[in-house]
């Protein structure tokens, strides 16, 4: 048990980063339980921020290389998502390959047929929550219907119906359930960028999402539970508009 004055003294020392790792843990535990203490820490930080700015009124600036390194790291982070990057590469390659495009179109047509069959077979299993909205979109000729095909060894498939207003639904009940520490995540390719369209969970069902812009493709990946800003996991299923 720590005395009240002690924790406030320790908090001030914590604010200036002058405590030991053990004391840091004690303070952080206290902070997690006491909103007043958090307010006190916030005040300390405001004071210190003002002092830090004041003692160096004409600071030297960091080299322009720092910002270049930041952007390179961000861009690099996108590239360390090799499988999604490869999706983009495939998209680009296929855009310029008539033969590939023809084959892919045939495969997609087959997949769509299969997809319709799977969809019909699964009608009764699906949760009815978004059923009406999905059906409405399926009847809408301006909507995009996409079947995401397995991208690797995992037998997986998902279907997406996307309205012209960018609201869509993914029915991903044909994905194998994952461990609770993992999740499926939906990605959209918009303007040559791969962006997250939502975290689907470990055992996904029908889920709505929204994307703004012209969607060139979708992918579902397996990620750590909670989802990630940039994919680090395996691509499970893919659909490309111009394939």
């Amino acid at each position: 048990m720590i005395a009240s004055d002690d924790i406030h003294d320790l908090l001030a020392a914590y604010a200036v980063d002058s405590v030991s790792p053990e004391e840091r843990a004690i303070v952080e535990l206290a902070l997690s339980r006491d909103p007043q203490l958090r307010g006190e820490l916030d005040d300390h930080r405001v004071v210190l921020g003002i002092l830090a700015d004041a003692v160096d009124p004409h600071p030297s600036t960091p080299s322009p290389l720092v910002w270049q390194r930041i952007t390179a790291e961000i861009d690099g982070a996108e590239e360390v998502s090799p499988r999604l990057a490869s999706v983009r590469d495939i998209q680009k390659q296929r855009r310029f390959s008539k033969w590939t495009a023809t084959m892919a179109f045939a495969a997609m047509a087959l997949a769509l047929l299969l997809g319709v069959s799977v969809y019909q077979l699964q009608q009764e299993r699906r949760t009815p929550v978004f059923e009406a909205a999905i059906q409405e979109l399926l009847d809408d000729p301006t909507a995009t219907v996409a079947t995401l095909e397995a991208a690797g060894d995992v037998a997986a498939e998902a279907r997406i119906v996307l309205g012209a207003d960018g609201v869509g639904y993914v029915y991903a009940d044909n994905l194998p359930p994952l461990d609770a520490s993992r999740t499926y995540q939906l990605w959209a390719i918009v303007d040559d960028r791969v962006i997250s369209a939502g975290v689907l969970g470990a055992d996904p069902d029908d889920s709505p999402f929204q994307v703004v812009g012209d969607v060139a493709g979708f992918a579902i990946t397996e990620e750590v539970a909670g989802g990630v800003p940039v994919s680090e996991g395996e691509t499970i299923a893919v659909w490309l508009r111009n394939a």
């Binding site: 830090a52 700015d53 003692v55 160096d56 600071p59 030297s60 600036t61 960091p62 080299s63 290389l65 720092v66 910002w67 390194r69 930041i70 790291e73 961000i74």
Partner: peptide, 30 residues
């Protein structure tokens, strides 16, 4: 960025290390 760099430089006393800290801070924010 300049304030972040200035504080880091005051503490680590090295332009190179301070730039490393600055990069880390903005990557954490990202």
């Amino acid at each position: 960025g300049t304030s972040v760099f200035a504080l880091a430089r005051r503490l680590v006393k090295s332009r190179e290390l301070a730039e490393e800290v600055t990069q880390e801070i903005f990557m954490r924010l990202w």
